[in-house]
Design a protein around this nucleic acid. Sequence first.
RNA 1: CGGGGCGUAACUCAGUUUGGUAGAGUGCUUGCUUUGGGAGCAAGAUGCCGCAGGUUCAAGUCCUGUCGCCCCGACCA
Length: 478
Amino acid sequence: MAKEKMVQQITSMDEDFAKWYTDIFKKAELVEYTSVKGCMVIRPYGYAIWENIQHILDGMFKATGHENVCMPMFIPESLLQKEKDHIEGFAPEVAWVTYGGTEKLEERLCVRPTSETLFCEHYANIVHSYRDLPKLYNQWVSVVRWEKTTRPFLRSREFLWQEGHTIHATAEEAMEETERMLNVYADFCEKYLAMPVVKGRKTDSDKFAGAEITYCIEALMHDGKALQAGTSHYFGDGFAKAFEIMYTDKENKKVYPHQTSWGVTTRLIGAIIMTHGDNNGLVLPPAVAPVQAVIVPIQQFKEGVLEKANEIADTLRAAGIRVKVDDSDNSPGWKFSEYEMKGVPVRIEIGPKDIENGQCVTVMRHNRQKDFVSLDGIADTVKQKLDEVRDGLYKAALENRENRTYKCTDMDGITKALEAGDGFVKAMWCGDEACEDKVKEITGVGSRCIPFEQENLSDVCVCCGKPAKKMLYWGKAY
RNA sequence: CGGGGCGUAACUCAGUUUGGUAGAGUGCUUGCUUUGGGAGCAAGAUGCCGCAGGUUCAAGUCCUGUCGCCCCGACCA
């Protein structure tokens, strides 16, 4: 009975995945809509997830030699236009500032959709010698893209992200950096977010505006749709030439440096929701959960119960676990449901009976496994449970991806495979853009990436039958 | 930007067909009883019916316009 009622608040994901997604971020108090379309309030619980993501990633950036900076939020139109492909790619979705107070600006300013141009302008000023290289910069800011269709965390007009921008003496170094950062993202997703990703390269039609090469990580959501979780771009010296960034090398010759950029966004929170969430609510990977363990006292009005709950909390806190004691006067059952909805990885129940026995109850969020555990060594026990949750989440996500990954060798095969549900399609490709378009038109799945891990499924292109060059991942994308 | 849907209490919605005192459940406040899976009883507070015009003795309801939001497509992190 209680179980049914609990589920009533959240639409089942089989019934309506989009509604389920909306229910989750509202009920878990991650986001509220505002009066500006596509701009959302990220509430404390949602923002805390982002802060944890930031904290871990920032550490990884620092460990690989990067420094944080902060660029302006405005870009003069003339600056944005310096690189042709770049402006073409972004022009349709930038917001413009045309007035300062009551005065019309002589040159309009765009609100940054990304900051390549600003970094380039800056690099042109500060890079003169090979001794100035490399510069490994990153910034944590928000950017604006005037999207037509919006959805919290997945596609909003303003979103938070980090953008790394680096500049190197040689193409080799820049390539190395591009790959290094893609690996940082992939490691982060798999280890901390328990989200398996496919590493690969975008086809030319799909790469970043102004990039020579775009690498990406692609994840598969519960509903079988693909989500680009991060990108890392190699620019070669294209931007350097457009912005006239030059340095003097050891032979006293003026040469162009090589650049990269890479980014992940609050979209990762959307990815977490759609990778791990279930019909009872959000399920958070322990590494980024604002609360890793919640303590629910039972019969908290009885003497000693709250004291014991707080004592356990102190022990866990001392061990570095983010813990909360809920001593509100809601019923225990209410609290159980509440924290399941909010995705807290481990719940601890402690009541008079437990205290007598020197034990408590732990329940893991992802599988509801309930254990009676001793209060001795509780911190180690909880840590172990958190690891178990992380591993369980990863395993389930990987299983979902494997179950929804189809190998196909002809067009009918793709259509047929997708009848079982959306997912990744692996299929061979000749390298021709026309075939990418045609596959999308006929089967509905677009090219996601050329995975680093190649397989030879067939010798010919799935579409045109000409000799195949690469195996591609295809899918419907968010 | 195309197609569809919706704007009434903090939330979910009924009421609009056929104009006639502004409603329900949940939540909120107070008190008592409860507490190992969303507790029970009692008492209370809460409304520019999205906005602007119009028709009418009378508009949440009819007409015109407008704004916003959600969903599905095309475009994109």
